[in-house]
Simulated assay, not measured.
Amino acid sequence: MPARPRALGALVALFTAGYLAPYLLPTLVGRLSAGLGLSSAQAGLIGSVLLLGSSCAGFALASSVERIGPRGAARLGLACMALGYGTAAASASLSPVVAGAVLGGFGSGTATAVAASGISGRPDPHRAATLGLLTVSATAGGLYLTLPHLGTGHALPFAAIAAAALLVWPLTGWLPGGTAALRRTPVGPLPSRRAGAVLAASILCWSMAQNALWGVSGRIGLTQAGLSEVALGLVFAVALGAGLAGVTAAGALGPRLGRAAPIGVGTALIAGCVVLSAAADDAGSFATGEILWNALYPVVLSHLLGLAATLDPRGRWAVLVGSASSLGVACGPVTGSLLSEAVGYPGMGLALGALLLVVAAPMTGVARRGAFSAGPLGSGAGVRPLSEEVSPSGV
Protein backbone atom coordinates (compact mmCIF):
# COMPACT_ATOMS: atom_id res chain seq x y z
CA MET A 1 0.00 0.00 0.00
CA PRO A 2 1.42 3.41 -0.93
CA ALA A 3 0.16 5.21 2.18
CA ARG A 4 2.81 3.87 4.51
CA PRO A 5 5.85 4.61 2.28
CA ARG A 6 4.43 8.08 1.69
CA ALA A 7 3.91 8.63 5.42
CA LEU A 8 7.47 7.48 6.08
CA GLY A 9 8.74 9.88 3.43
CA ALA A 10 6.84 12.73 5.06
CA LEU A 11 8.25 11.84 8.50
CA VAL A 12 11.83 11.69 7.19
CA ALA A 13 11.35 15.03 5.44
CA LEU A 14 10.01 16.57 8.66
CA PHE A 15 12.92 15.08 10.61
CA THR A 16 15.33 16.65 8.10
CA ALA A 17 13.69 20.08 8.24
CA GLY A 18 13.52 20.04 12.04
CA TYR A 19 17.15 19.04 12.56
CA LEU A 20 18.59 21.29 9.84
CA ALA A 21 19.02 24.36 12.06
CA PRO A 22 21.05 22.52 14.75
CA TYR A 23 23.22 20.94 12.04
CA LEU A 24 23.90 24.36 10.52
CA LEU A 25 24.46 26.04 13.88
CA PRO A 26 28.24 26.59 13.44
CA THR A 27 27.77 28.52 10.20
CA LEU A 28 24.72 30.36 11.58
CA VAL A 29 26.67 31.54 14.62
CA GLY A 30 29.75 32.45 12.60
CA ARG A 31 27.79 34.44 10.03
CA LEU A 32 25.74 36.21 12.70
CA SER A 33 28.95 37.29 14.39
CA ALA A 34 30.46 38.63 11.18
CA GLY A 35 27.30 40.08 9.62
CA LEU A 36 25.82 41.84 12.64
CA GLY A 37 29.06 42.80 14.34
CA LEU A 38 28.39 40.57 17.35
CA SER A 39 30.96 38.98 19.58
CA SER A 40 31.30 35.22 19.45
CA ALA A 41 29.52 34.95 22.79
CA GLN A 42 26.62 37.11 21.62
CA ALA A 43 26.21 35.18 18.38
CA GLY A 44 26.44 31.92 20.29
CA LEU A 45 23.73 33.12 22.64
CA ILE A 46 21.37 33.63 19.69
CA GLY A 47 22.12 30.07 18.60
CA SER A 48 21.40 28.82 22.09
CA VAL A 49 18.10 30.74 22.18
CA LEU A 50 17.13 29.12 18.87
CA LEU A 51 17.84 25.66 20.28
CA LEU A 52 16.04 26.45 23.53
CA GLY A 53 12.97 27.38 21.49
CA SER A 54 13.22 24.05 19.71
CA SER A 55 13.58 22.17 22.99
CA CYS A 56 10.62 23.98 24.59
CA ALA A 57 8.41 23.07 21.62
CA GLY A 58 9.25 19.42 22.07
CA PHE A 59 8.53 19.42 25.80
CA ALA A 60 5.24 21.26 25.23
CA LEU A 61 4.05 18.95 22.44
CA ALA A 62 5.23 15.59 23.78
CA SER A 63 1.71 14.42 24.64
CA SER A 64 -0.25 16.66 22.27
CA VAL A 65 0.81 15.67 18.76
CA GLU A 66 -2.02 13.18 18.30
CA ARG A 67 -4.60 15.49 19.88
CA ILE A 68 -3.65 18.31 17.52
CA GLY A 69 -3.14 15.85 14.68
CA PRO A 70 0.21 15.03 13.02
CA ARG A 71 -0.77 16.91 9.87
CA GLY A 72 -1.88 20.05 11.68
CA ALA A 73 1.08 20.05 14.07
CA ALA A 74 3.53 19.54 11.21
CA ARG A 75 2.06 22.42 9.24
CA LEU A 76 2.15 24.66 12.31
CA GLY A 77 5.84 23.86 12.80
CA LEU A 78 6.75 24.38 9.15
CA ALA A 79 4.85 27.69 9.06
CA CYS A 80 6.75 28.91 12.14
CA MET A 81 10.02 27.84 10.53
CA ALA A 82 9.29 29.60 7.25
CA LEU A 83 8.10 32.80 8.94
CA GLY A 84 10.72 32.87 11.68
CA TYR A 85 13.81 31.96 9.69
CA GLY A 86 12.55 34.00 6.73
CA THR A 87 12.26 37.06 8.99
CA ALA A 88 15.78 36.47 10.35
CA ALA A 89 17.11 36.15 6.79
CA ALA A 90 15.44 39.34 5.59
CA SER A 91 16.54 41.53 8.50
CA ALA A 92 19.84 43.23 9.20
CA SER A 93 18.78 44.39 12.69
CA LEU A 94 19.39 42.41 15.84
CA SER A 95 15.87 42.38 17.33
CA PRO A 96 14.07 40.88 14.29
CA VAL A 97 16.85 38.33 13.88
CA VAL A 98 16.50 37.19 17.49
CA ALA A 99 12.70 37.09 17.28
CA GLY A 100 12.88 35.16 14.02
CA ALA A 101 15.37 32.69 15.46
CA VAL A 102 13.11 32.03 18.46
CA LEU A 103 10.01 31.51 16.29
CA GLY A 104 11.96 29.41 13.82
CA GLY A 105 13.44 27.35 16.64
CA PHE A 106 9.96 26.67 18.00
CA GLY A 107 8.94 25.54 14.52
CA SER A 108 11.96 23.26 14.21
CA GLY A 109 11.12 21.66 17.54
CA THR A 110 7.51 21.18 16.49
CA ALA A 111 8.50 19.50 13.21
CA THR A 112 10.94 17.26 15.06
CA ALA A 113 8.29 16.35 17.63
CA VAL A 114 5.87 15.22 14.92
CA ALA A 115 8.61 13.25 13.18
CA ALA A 116 9.77 11.57 16.38
CA SER A 117 6.21 10.69 17.39
CA GLY A 118 5.47 9.18 13.99
CA ILE A 119 8.77 7.31 13.72
CA SER A 120 8.05 5.66 17.08
CA GLY A 121 4.97 4.06 15.57
CA ARG A 122 6.87 2.45 12.71
CA PRO A 123 7.55 -1.31 12.78
CA ASP A 124 11.31 -0.53 12.78
CA PRO A 125 11.88 2.89 14.38
CA HIS A 126 15.67 2.47 14.38
CA ARG A 127 15.84 2.26 10.61
CA ALA A 128 13.44 5.17 10.21
CA ALA A 129 15.54 7.33 12.57
CA THR A 130 18.71 6.31 10.76
CA LEU A 131 17.19 7.30 7.42
CA GLY A 132 16.29 10.68 8.90
CA LEU A 133 19.84 11.20 10.19
CA LEU A 134 21.28 10.21 6.82
CA THR A 135 19.02 12.67 5.00
CA VAL A 136 19.70 15.61 7.29
CA SER A 137 23.46 14.90 7.25
CA ALA A 138 23.49 14.85 3.45
CA THR A 139 21.37 18.01 3.23
CA ALA A 140 23.54 19.89 5.72
CA GLY A 141 26.67 18.67 3.98
CA GLY A 142 25.42 19.96 0.65
CA LEU A 143 24.65 23.34 2.19
CA TYR A 144 28.06 23.54 3.87
CA LEU A 145 29.66 23.01 0.48
CA THR A 146 27.31 25.33 -1.41
CA LEU A 147 26.71 28.35 0.84
CA PRO A 148 30.30 29.67 0.85
CA HIS A 149 30.12 30.06 -2.94
CA LEU A 150 26.89 32.05 -2.79
CA GLY A 151 28.02 34.85 -0.51
CA THR A 152 28.52 35.84 3.11
CA GLY A 153 26.17 37.02 5.82
CA HIS A 154 23.53 35.32 7.91
CA ALA A 155 20.71 35.63 5.36
CA LEU A 156 21.72 32.62 3.25
CA PRO A 157 21.65 29.86 5.91
CA PHE A 158 18.46 31.20 7.47
CA ALA A 159 16.85 31.42 4.04
CA ALA A 160 17.96 27.87 3.24
CA ILE A 161 16.21 26.51 6.34
CA ALA A 162 13.06 28.50 5.58
CA ALA A 163 13.10 27.15 2.02
CA ALA A 164 13.47 23.61 3.33
CA ALA A 165 10.33 24.11 5.43
CA LEU A 166 8.37 25.30 2.41
CA LEU A 167 9.58 22.36 0.32
CA VAL A 168 8.45 19.87 2.97
CA TRP A 169 4.99 21.48 3.37
CA PRO A 170 3.30 19.60 0.47
CA LEU A 171 4.36 16.26 1.96
CA THR A 172 2.32 16.88 5.12
CA GLY A 173 -0.76 15.84 3.18
CA TRP A 174 0.50 12.26 3.56
CA LEU A 175 0.21 12.47 7.35
CA PRO A 176 -2.96 11.44 9.22
CA GLY A 177 -5.24 13.82 11.06
CA GLY A 178 -5.65 13.73 14.84
CA THR A 179 -9.20 12.36 15.00
CA ALA A 180 -8.46 9.19 13.02
CA ALA A 181 -5.30 8.49 14.99
CA LEU A 182 -7.09 8.92 18.32
CA ARG A 183 -9.88 6.54 17.32
CA ARG A 184 -7.40 3.80 16.49
CA THR A 185 -5.53 3.80 19.79
CA PRO A 186 -6.76 5.10 23.16
CA VAL A 187 -4.41 7.44 25.00
CA GLY A 188 -2.94 5.85 28.10
CA PRO A 189 -0.54 6.96 30.84
CA LEU A 190 3.08 7.55 29.95
CA PRO A 191 4.82 4.15 30.20
CA SER A 192 8.41 3.32 31.14
CA ARG A 193 8.70 6.37 33.34
CA ARG A 194 11.88 5.41 35.16
CA ALA A 195 13.70 4.24 32.04
CA GLY A 196 12.51 7.26 30.08
CA ALA A 197 13.51 9.76 32.77
CA VAL A 198 16.97 8.22 33.10
CA LEU A 199 17.45 8.18 29.34
CA ALA A 200 16.29 11.82 28.97
CA ALA A 201 18.58 13.05 31.75
CA SER A 202 21.51 11.06 30.38
CA ILE A 203 21.11 12.23 26.78
CA LEU A 204 20.92 15.82 27.98
CA CYS A 205 24.38 15.44 29.51
CA TRP A 206 25.56 13.36 26.52
CA SER A 207 24.60 16.08 24.04
CA MET A 208 25.87 18.90 26.23
CA ALA A 209 29.32 17.31 26.60
CA GLN A 210 29.82 16.84 22.87
CA ASN A 211 28.48 20.23 21.86
CA ALA A 212 30.63 21.87 24.53
CA LEU A 213 33.61 20.64 22.52
CA TRP A 214 31.97 21.41 19.18
CA GLY A 215 31.44 25.01 20.26
CA VAL A 216 35.18 25.57 20.74
CA SER A 217 36.60 23.11 18.20
CA GLY A 218 37.32 25.90 15.74
CA ARG A 219 39.34 27.78 18.30
CA ILE A 220 41.22 24.64 19.32
CA GLY A 221 42.15 23.93 15.70
CA LEU A 222 43.31 27.47 15.01
CA THR A 223 45.04 28.43 18.24
CA GLN A 224 46.24 25.16 19.77
CA ALA A 225 46.67 22.76 16.84
CA GLY A 226 48.03 25.49 14.54
CA LEU A 227 45.74 24.92 11.55
CA SER A 228 44.94 27.58 9.00
CA GLU A 229 41.32 28.45 8.31
CA VAL A 230 41.48 26.55 5.02
CA ALA A 231 42.90 23.45 6.69
CA LEU A 232 40.35 23.69 9.50
CA GLY A 233 37.51 23.83 6.97
CA LEU A 234 38.92 20.76 5.25
CA VAL A 235 39.03 18.84 8.53
CA PHE A 236 35.40 19.69 9.26
CA ALA A 237 34.37 18.71 5.72
CA VAL A 238 36.05 15.32 6.04
CA ALA A 239 34.52 14.90 9.50
CA LEU A 240 31.08 15.55 8.02
CA GLY A 241 31.78 12.89 5.40
CA ALA A 242 32.74 10.51 8.17
CA GLY A 243 29.42 11.30 9.81
CA LEU A 244 27.61 10.27 6.64
CA ALA A 245 29.61 7.02 6.65
CA GLY A 246 28.65 6.49 10.28
CA VAL A 247 24.96 6.98 9.54
CA THR A 248 25.19 4.56 6.61
CA ALA A 249 26.92 1.97 8.78
CA ALA A 250 24.30 2.38 11.50
CA GLY A 251 21.55 1.81 8.96
CA ALA A 252 23.25 -1.27 7.53
CA LEU A 253 23.84 -2.84 10.92
CA GLY A 254 20.43 -1.92 12.33
CA PRO A 255 19.76 -3.55 15.70
CA ARG A 256 21.90 -6.63 14.94
CA LEU A 257 24.38 -5.73 17.67
CA GLY A 258 21.60 -4.87 20.09
CA ARG A 259 21.50 -1.39 21.56
CA ALA A 260 23.55 -1.74 24.73
CA ALA A 261 26.90 -2.36 23.01
CA PRO A 262 26.67 0.45 20.43
CA ILE A 263 25.50 2.93 23.07
CA GLY A 264 27.93 1.95 25.82
CA VAL A 265 31.04 1.17 23.79
CA GLY A 266 30.30 3.95 21.30
CA THR A 267 29.99 6.56 24.04
CA ALA A 268 33.25 5.37 25.62
CA LEU A 269 35.03 5.73 22.28
CA ILE A 270 33.51 9.17 21.80
CA ALA A 271 34.88 10.16 25.21
CA GLY A 272 38.34 9.19 24.01
CA CYS A 273 37.92 11.26 20.84
CA VAL A 274 36.81 14.26 22.90
CA VAL A 275 39.92 14.02 25.07
CA LEU A 276 42.15 13.63 21.98
CA SER A 277 40.64 16.60 20.12
CA ALA A 278 40.74 18.90 23.14
CA ALA A 279 44.39 18.08 23.90
CA ALA A 280 45.55 18.19 20.26
CA ASP A 281 48.59 20.38 19.62
CA ASP A 282 49.16 19.32 16.00
CA ALA A 283 47.05 18.89 12.89
CA GLY A 284 47.21 15.10 12.84
CA SER A 285 45.85 14.46 16.31
CA PHE A 286 43.21 17.16 15.95
CA ALA A 287 41.98 15.77 12.62
CA THR A 288 41.97 12.20 13.96
CA GLY A 289 39.91 13.11 16.98
CA GLU A 290 37.40 15.21 15.03
CA ILE A 291 36.90 12.69 12.21
CA LEU A 292 36.53 9.62 14.44
CA TRP A 293 34.21 11.53 16.75
CA ASN A 294 31.92 12.57 13.90
CA ALA A 295 31.85 9.02 12.55
CA LEU A 296 30.80 7.56 15.91
CA TYR A 297 28.29 10.22 16.94
CA PRO A 298 25.45 9.32 14.52
CA VAL A 299 25.84 5.61 15.22
CA VAL A 300 25.21 6.11 18.93
CA LEU A 301 22.55 8.77 18.37
CA SER A 302 20.54 6.54 16.03
CA HIS A 303 20.47 3.80 18.67
CA LEU A 304 19.48 6.29 21.38
CA LEU A 305 16.60 7.57 19.25
CA GLY A 306 15.56 4.01 18.45
CA LEU A 307 15.71 3.12 22.15
CA ALA A 308 13.52 6.10 23.08
CA ALA A 309 11.00 5.01 20.44
CA THR A 310 10.61 1.57 22.03
CA LEU A 311 9.69 3.04 25.42
CA ASP A 312 6.34 4.30 24.12
CA PRO A 313 4.84 3.36 20.73
CA ARG A 314 2.88 6.64 20.76
CA GLY A 315 6.17 8.52 20.56
CA ARG A 316 5.96 10.59 23.74
CA TRP A 317 9.30 9.45 25.11
CA ALA A 318 10.91 9.88 21.68
CA VAL A 319 9.80 13.52 21.70
CA LEU A 320 10.87 14.13 25.29
CA VAL A 321 14.27 12.48 24.81
CA GLY A 322 14.82 14.45 21.59
CA SER A 323 13.90 17.67 23.39
CA ALA A 324 16.30 16.84 26.22
CA SER A 325 19.00 16.33 23.61
CA SER A 326 18.21 19.75 22.10
CA LEU A 327 18.43 21.32 25.54
CA GLY A 328 21.86 19.74 25.99
CA VAL A 329 22.94 21.04 22.60
CA ALA A 330 21.81 24.54 23.58
CA CYS A 331 23.79 24.44 26.83
CA GLY A 332 26.91 23.00 25.17
CA PRO A 333 28.63 26.11 23.78
CA VAL A 334 28.29 28.00 27.07
CA THR A 335 29.62 25.01 28.99
CA GLY A 336 32.59 24.64 26.65
CA SER A 337 33.49 28.31 26.86
CA LEU A 338 33.33 28.38 30.67
CA LEU A 339 35.31 25.16 31.08
CA SER A 340 38.01 26.13 28.59
CA GLU A 341 38.47 29.49 30.27
CA ALA A 342 38.69 27.85 33.70
CA VAL A 343 40.95 24.84 33.03
CA GLY A 344 42.14 25.18 29.44
CA TYR A 345 41.26 23.03 26.47
CA PRO A 346 42.95 19.80 27.64
CA GLY A 347 41.34 20.08 31.08
CA MET A 348 37.98 20.73 29.45
CA GLY A 349 38.41 17.60 27.34
CA LEU A 350 39.15 15.48 30.40
CA ALA A 351 36.09 16.83 32.21
CA LEU A 352 33.81 16.24 29.24
CA GLY A 353 35.25 12.79 28.62
CA ALA A 354 34.65 11.85 32.24
CA LEU A 355 31.04 13.07 32.01
CA LEU A 356 30.47 10.94 28.91
CA LEU A 357 31.81 7.86 30.67
CA VAL A 358 29.54 8.53 33.64
CA VAL A 359 26.37 8.81 31.53
CA ALA A 360 27.32 5.79 29.41
CA ALA A 361 26.46 3.49 32.32
CA PRO A 362 22.79 4.48 32.85
CA MET A 363 22.14 4.69 29.10
CA THR A 364 23.51 1.18 28.68
CA GLY A 365 21.39 0.05 31.61
CA VAL A 366 18.23 1.36 29.95
CA ALA A 367 19.26 -0.34 26.71
CA ARG A 368 19.68 -3.67 28.46
CA ARG A 369 16.25 -3.15 30.05
CA GLY A 370 17.25 -5.01 33.16
CA ALA A 371 18.15 -2.21 35.53
CA PHE A 372 15.03 -0.06 35.38
CA SER A 373 11.30 -0.61 35.55
CA ALA A 374 8.81 0.39 32.89
CA GLY A 375 6.01 1.50 35.17
CA PRO A 376 5.65 4.63 37.27
CA LEU A 377 8.66 5.56 39.34
CA GLY A 378 9.20 3.02 42.02
CA SER A 379 6.45 0.68 40.82
CA GLY A 380 8.70 -2.22 39.98
CA ALA A 381 6.59 -3.17 36.98
CA GLY A 382 8.32 -5.22 34.36
CA VAL A 383 9.55 -3.95 31.00
CA ARG A 384 8.71 -5.64 27.75
CA PRO A 385 11.78 -6.80 25.81
CA LEU A 386 13.28 -4.57 23.19
CA SER A 387 12.87 -7.28 20.60
CA GLU A 388 9.07 -6.99 20.78
CA GLU A 389 7.85 -5.27 17.64
CA VAL A 390 6.07 -1.97 18.13
CA SER A 391 2.72 -1.92 16.35
CA PRO A 392 2.20 0.91 13.85
CA SER A 393 0.09 3.83 15.01
CA GLY A 394 -1.40 4.67 11.67
CA VAL A 395 1.40 6.73 10.15
Rank of each mutant, 00 (worst) to 15 (best):
A242I: 11
P385N: 03
S54M: 15
Y85A: 07
P186Q: 10
A330P: 00
A197Q: 09
R219T: 12
A354C: 14
P392A: 13
G336Y: 09
S120E: 10
G378W: 00
A21Q: 13
D282C: 10
G266Y: 07
R369G: 05
R122I: 03
A295M: 14
G251H: 08
D282V: 02
V334S: 09
F59R: 06
G322F: 04
S207E: 06
G365H: 00
L76P: 00
A128P: 07
V187W: 07
L32E: 07
L301R: 06
G107W: 09
S93V: 04
R194K: 10
H154T: 06
P157D: 12
G344D: 02
A73I: 03
L171E: 02
A351P: 02
T185Q: 11
M363V: 08
G141D: 04
P189W: 05
A43G: 14
T248W: 15
S63D: 13
A89L: 12
A261Y: 15
L166Y: 08
A180T: 10
L232W: 10
E229A: 15
G77L: 01
M81N: 02
A128S: 15
P189R: 08
G72K: 14
W169M: 12
P26K: 06
S39Y: 10
V230D: 13
A249T: 13
G365I: 00
P191S: 01
S48L: 04
G188T: 14
L232C: 08
V329S: 07
S391C: 03
G47S: 03
A129H: 14
L244Y: 11
A318I: 01
V265R: 04
G44T: 02
P333C: 06
A342M: 11
P96Q: 06
S373L: 00
G243S: 13
S340T: 15
P22Y: 01
A34L: 13
R122K: 07
S302D: 09
V300A: 10
L355W: 04
A309N: 04
V198E: 00
S91V: 05
G382F: 00
G109A: 11
A164S: 14
P5W: 15
A17P: 04
A252D: 01
C56V: 15
V114N: 07
V329A: 07
Y345S: 05
S64C: 07
S33P: 08
L167W: 09
G241V: 09
G289K: 00
G243W: 11
V359Y: 06
I68D: 03
C56Q: 11
P333E: 07
L78W: 06
L307R: 04
G177E: 15
A209H: 06
C273E: 02
S323M: 08
V319Y: 04
V102R: 05
A160G: 05
S120H: 12
L94K: 02
G332L: 00
L8K: 10
A180Y: 05
V12N: 05
L296I: 02
L276V: 09
V275P: 01
L51M: 15
L227K: 08
G118C: 13
V358Y: 14
G72Y: 14
E290K: 04
G264L: 14
L386H: 05
A200G: 10
G241P: 12
R259M: 14
V247P: 00
V275H: 05
A381S: 11
L8C: 08
